[in-house]
Design a protein around this nucleic acid. Sequence first.
DNA 1: TTTACTTCTCAAAGCGCTTTGGGTCGCTAA
DNA 2: TTAGCGACCCAAAGCGCTTTGAGAAGTAAA
Lengths: 338, 338
Amino acid sequence: MDLKRLSKHLGLSQTTVSRALNGYPDVSAATRERVTNAAREVGYSPNPLARRLAKGRLEAVGVIMSVGVGNFGDPFYSEFLAGVAEVFHQADMDLLVVAAPTGEEELSAYRRMVEGRRVDGLIVARTRTKDPRINYLLERNFPFVTFGRSGESAQHAFLDMDNEAGFIQVTERLIDFGHSRIALINAPEDLHFALLRRHGYERALRDAGLECDPELIVEGDRGEVDGHRLAERLLGLDRPPTALLCASDAMALGAMRAVKECGRTVGTDVSIIGYDDLPFAKYTEPPLTTLHQPIRPAGAHVAEMLLSRISGSTIEDLQDLWQPRLIVRESDGICHSK
Amino acid sequence: MDLKRLSKHLGLSQTTVSRALNGYPDVSAATRERVTNAAREVGYSPNPLARRLAKGRLEAVGVIMSVGVGNFGDPFYSEFLAGVAEVFHQADMDLLVVAAPTGEEELSAYRRMVEGRRVDGLIVARTRTKDPRINYLLERNFPFVTFGRSGESAQHAFLDMDNEAGFIQVTERLIDFGHSRIALINAPEDLHFALLRRHGYERALRDAGLECDPELIVEGDRGEVDGHRLAERLLGLDRPPTALLCASDAMALGAMRAVKECGRTVGTDVSIIGYDDLPFAKYTEPPLTTLHQPIRPAGAHVAEMLLSRISGSTIEDLQDLWQPRLIVRESDGICHSK
DNA sequence: TTTACTTCTCAAAGCGCTTTGGGTCGCTAA
DNA sequence: TTAGCGACCCAAAGCGCTTTGAGAAGTAAA
């Protein structure tokens, strides 16, 4: 059923029916009522394509997942998208998602979205310090908000976890436990959050007057596997660390294995702290101390920010920092080495 | 830049330019060349809205994630969507995703998609035996393909893992190890795959002439938590099981904890087998024996199936069953109880 | 020279909405 | 009585494409 037939059926013009349905004030209450009822009865709903074409708004937003090869098990997007999707659904906006591997192809996916006029705005996650996607969007002056800051954060809307504060907190915790050789098993530092985490780590170390041994800072991107590999290497050092700060629970899990394999015990001999608070973290042995971040709510919040960005809010009002929450379990503790 | 301006610029009609760009045979090679070049130069790309409106095709498909509360950490959709999204991106189709909790609201999300003419087809995952979404789509005769079978599988396109075969295999494996009291910690059985897994389990038991004790079949839906709770209960039975077959790695992880808590050791005293082969499964203690299913490729395949369904393929040609792959690690073994 | 095709191009009619820019009608105020 | 003003309603012009139905030009056959 389309507008034409509906209006014919009602003996009214398309104009009037359209305006009645869209809440314009220049139609009488009686007419509006009649129209609304009829519309409901015959199950009329406007063709969104036609509506959008006429209005010149897309009523759609997009998110481009940057997928790696085989980083299965990363629950991030599941949760994040759930939050995002729900908000846009409420707002009657379409959410387009595409998956592209980081790199040239990724950028072309962005171009397709903006130059192909498919969406009114974009969400970008997994931000990098030097992020070509952000530069691109900035220079096209296209509405977007990021989850995570970047090198250009001042110029765009974002929600981010306060990674620096989080890592200051956990590093201080380890220092308080008496650890002085604390290693950082970080994510690749082109990811901006990883950089900030290192800053937090170094800052806490410096503030406590501790040496900041570059040998103790390593990075990798393959979760458990790299966590294991890197921890192994660290523990083999002449002066091995007594605590391992990991950029993710997955890495922490790999690190745990490495610790056990060289005959020491996690929590007493060497402390481990993760990040993410994945459900399995409660069930590792020992249960993993970690930092919690509410991904789903974050997704929802980013979505809301984009909505208000699109409707004209200024960037300054759209820059939020959330605090991660420390979840104390049993994988860390007092330093027993001399 | 729009068609009108481009064609004016070229001194041609919109018709010709349009047809040149869309590969119609009735335009001379020279003209086509001229048009294509000009289009590239000025960066022309057709407005998808207008195109779709004119063609009467939406060039979009949708997937509705059924999100529960707080089932964070479920990497399923991350992987699945990555596969799906990539295929549709290649095919130049938009992928719409919405998230809705199971129930009435979920169904209305489906209605919005089909009656609101937003997509040409849908993908439905996490199918249930009696699945109102499937019934709805069936009765509207709307193109869709599911990941997972349902009570109505005969009537729709699907890709599914052969859950029954998978569970026959692992159950037989445990039987071969000498286990006779094997428990099944299942997902809620309204999820069709859970039902099929039980069938496989029961079938293997019967074929081996073993008793099929209903006391040993339990279900839950909260991953680690329920795995732990249910295993605890099972181990407290008068005649406790010596093997726990779990519907997911998450549950298996919870179950492992329960086993250890009551002082027995996983793999020798009680065998545990999971399902999913999440990355952490390699790093549990002991490493978890499990069934692997390739989610990302599955997503991609489902997407391709939908594409061919939309372009007219018959349902019979679109019903595939993939075999899960057994990953043997160390959480199961010979039964040592008398 | 016609006739009959090809080959290439185009004007115009949609697709299903929204919006602009008037109208018409009945009332009040002058 | 008439101008002026709300309150309602409508015809028509887009939005930016695709597609239909035909026309013009050139070529080959008769």
